[in-house]
Design a protein around this nucleic acid. Structure first.
Lengths: 236, 236
DNA sequence: CGATGCGTTGATAACTTTCAAATTTAGTGG
DNA sequence: CCACTAAATTTGAAAGTTATCAACGCATCG
């Protein structure tokens, strides 16, 4: 059941004090993109580059840094003791991740494709939050958003395969969508491990949705939403 | 699929400044039972009494209060738009609930059996946390524990029925266990809605575990763990 | 005692996984 | 740039798991 090719290491510092202009691949406005926290990270952050499938941090490592995706995409995950992989979340350009309440990371993080991230010491952010209430509020709001996402995920995982895939598509559409065309940076296996399904079920479900003209799948990483209301109906 | 008998209202204030001695039904030491936060709640809290199946707070209500179970048991839940009920968690004597990061409750809360809870204004706690770092740390630690539980739940929900039930039993054993005998305050339907299974599957799984001498079920609300290592193996 | 709620058990249907193979896509060396 | 190999995705058939529908047993309560 292990489907992963985790290439450890391979990351290196590319430059510090990255330019304010983002080279991000996505057009969508992300959480933290135009706010005090995001700006702070751009000022204080070190720009790091991670090749496809390389590890950004590992489970149980101390959560000393906070990350913001500049370009590429990131998945967090956990390997269960039966060998299965559960994906915790996907992070796209503009998204902030690694912001744990706990002292150690509960998930590992990997670059899905070649990825650039801004890295800031967590202690720097929290001490800043002590002085700047705006930063504090944004950190709080980010954490509570993360919490909300987890709750949504719990609600998702008790639903049928079709409902899970529909929810996933709508979620991605909100984040990486241009004109109803969703660009998926992750593989089918990633999606399956995110939704708690097999790769075959994901594939079949997409085919099924295509058959009912709910979506179009011009290429495997590109999905066009043709009938959002049908998806919303499935989403529940 | 609606299986609930939610009796709204019916709650009343029984007394303020509850005695320090707990009349809790459980013997186990709970989160917050012997710490600054727990003590604070006992000093500042109003003791409220809720009959079986009555609502303590509703989804989307402002999360202005924090609750600590004195006796009885509480479930939080959400009704999905297809009518199913997803249970967010169970709270036993000593447990603190209603501590949201967000401004509104994401779940409703109900008394499973006749229940007494201590109620404290959230603002009182947070302002106290500003003056007393210990309280602040404990609030933080509680929140991060809650988060951890949610993550565990996500990992649980991708597993098989047997694994879910085994995990549930072990979880309850850690909380409401005396000498390997687990006392369940909740119904099979509650368990099913917690694990994302049907009541029949839960029942059959328990029968199956009994057949392999992993557990004993002397009465439906009482389960004796006979072979913990087998359960742990299932739990993964 | 009959009604009611809760839990168990059985039979069947629906859904998802598993195993296998075909097909498409991507990557690499010539 | 093309051919070739490896990887990813899709598709098919069978098996396994869980849900659904129905019936039964067992308490509690009026």
């Amino acid at each position: 059941m292990l489907t992963q090719t985790a290439n450890r290491g391979g990351a290196g510092v590319i430059g510090r004090f990255a330019p304010a202009k983002q080279s991000g691949s996505g057009a969508a406005t992300r959480v933290g993109e135009q706010n005090a926290l995001g700006q702070t990270m751009q000022l204080m952050g070190a720009l790091m580059s991670y090749p496809r499938n390389s590890e950004i941090f590992g489970e149980h490592e101390p959560a000393d840094y906070v990350y913001k995706v500049v370009s590429g995409a990131v998945r967090t995950y956990k390997i269960l003791n039966d060998g299965r992989r559960q994906i915790g979340g996907f992070y796209l350009p503009g998204d902030i991740f690694g912001l744990q309440l706990a002292e150690e990371h509960l998930f590992s993080a990997e670059a899905i494709s070649d990825t650039k991230v801004l890295v800031v010491k967590r202690s720097a952010l929290t001490s800043l939050a002590g002085r700047d209430a705006t930063i504090g509020r944004e950190l709080f709001s980010l954490t509570s958003r993360e919490l909300r996402r987890m709750q949504d995920r719990i609600l998702l995982l008790v639903k049928s395969a079709q409902e899970r895939v529909a929810s996933f598509l709508l979620e991605m559409a909100e984040r990486a969508c241009a004109n109803n065309a969703v660009e998926l940076p992750m593989s089918r296996q990633d999606i399956a491990d995110y939704l708690g399904l097999t790769i075959e079920t994901v594939s079949r479900t997409l085919t099924g949705l295509e058959a009912t003209a709910t979506i179009e799948v011009p290429s495997s990483r590109r999905i066009v939403l043709r009938n959002r209301s049908a998806l919303n109906r499935l989403n529940g």
